[in-house]
Nucleic acid binder design. Structure first.
Lengths: 220, 220
DNA sequence: GACTGTGAACATATTCACAGCG
DNA sequence: CGCTGTGAATATGTTCACAGTC
């Protein structure tokens, strides 16, 4: 029962949609409804869920709570994995604040930085520690995941040390290509990259900017 | 000469690699070298570049400056598109600071927020304006792209207004599924989603946390 | 009757392996 | 010779359309 990567990347979206339905007191849903909430087609949603096993009822639909538990399980949400964040600059600070809320199924357990002016200060309820102690902190917290929000310089070194310390997944915001061994999972988010991708399509479309166009409708 | 989406999403990475080579004074490169710098295979790199036309020399390689110009052109970097950012909270502030540096080929032209305590303050060299004036600001700056860093509540409304005002691409950090018409490009980045994807693989691997493992090597 | 789960068709993306060419 | 560019093979992902089942 191996789940395709493309499916995995959509499971968090389905989980959020299921959370919303549950919060609204909805008990049962359909592939059409869930797909609409998730911005995908019903066939894709059914195919995706089928990779987690058969959890719907033909002719009826899906039980919201049951399906939600099943999706949350596959994403490891109940384990509430420990996360450490390295790089408490502007961006790291903002990410820490979001994560510290703890609503996403993770426990942010430590903040690390190299800047003496930041070390020792309190951010999002945690005291920033010296990145020199990275190995000890990762071990102490049993961190499975790390968020990397340092500048590009030095990011590969921090990454290597995180891997050696035993984290199994890294989410990086540093604008460079990081090397990790195959058994470690790396996801990269970069503002400039994302905007450049948008720019590509923008110029293909031949629109150089926002000229006065008739207000369009909403929805896709 | 239509470029596949998967290729487009890698062009910014190639561009950064080419920038590095140029900065190091390297005049000529090969698919093997560029691919190594970009973390992809040589065949993929050659296939990707071939979609932009034939810019290498068989038996020799690629001219760094020429290729860089060609990739930058396809990404619309020389146009230096105008960008507006909506939502100057923690995250928006950090994103504005990165963008304001202007090193990525964009001009950050305006900041918008709904919070009266933020409006009028100066961030990254720009005065935060009232989101009520979104339409006028987008028109005034001729903004082609927008960055959305508001909370989930109200994000769809802002998104609709950005679309109606004529932006052609939106990068959102709000944790919800936004609807946009087909002619507008939407990219979504969400911390919780990314971490949940990592968590999926982490638990598949059966590693519950960071136990003492032998320090591994680097590189992939 | 209504909705899921899935085989089959299609579309997209990656990789191999080598022909083409300076 | 050495390296690019690309046909062909493979792998991955999406969509259709309907059989299966409550």
């Amino acid at each position: 029962m191996t789940v395709p990567g493309a499916t995995v990347s959509r499971l968090p979206i389905y989980l959020r949609a299921l959370d919303e339905l549950a919060a609204d007191g909805v008990l049962r849903t359909s592939s059409a409804e869930l797909a609409a909430l998730s911005g995908v087609g019903p066939a894709q949603l059914r195919r995706d869920l089928s990779h987690l096993g058969s959890h719907g009822v033909r002719g009826v639909g899906y039980d919201v709570d049951h399906l939600r538990a099943r999706v949350a399980d596959s994403l490891g949400v109940p384990a509430r994995l420990a996360v450490v964040l390295v790089g408490v600059g502007n961006l790291g600070h903002a990410l820490a604040a979001h994560l510290a809320a703890g609503q996403d199924g993770f426990r942010l357990r430590a903040l690390l930085d190299a800047d003496a002016r930041v070390i020792g200060s309190s951010v999002a309820g945690l005291v920033v520690e010296d990145v020199a102690r990275l190995e000890q902190v990762v071990a102490r917290e049993g961190a499975a995941l790390a968020v990397l929000a340092t500048p590009a310089e030095g990011a590969q070194e921090v990454c290597d040390r995180l891997v050696a310390a035993g984290v199994s997944g890294i989410l990086t915001f540093a604008p460079l290509v990081l090397r990790v061994p195959a058994e470690v999972d790396l996801r990269s988010v970069d503002l400039a990259t994302e905007l450049q991708i948008l720019a590509f399509h923008s110029q293909r479309r031949g629109l150089s900017g926002a000229a006065g166009r008739a207000p369009g409708g909403r929805s896709r």
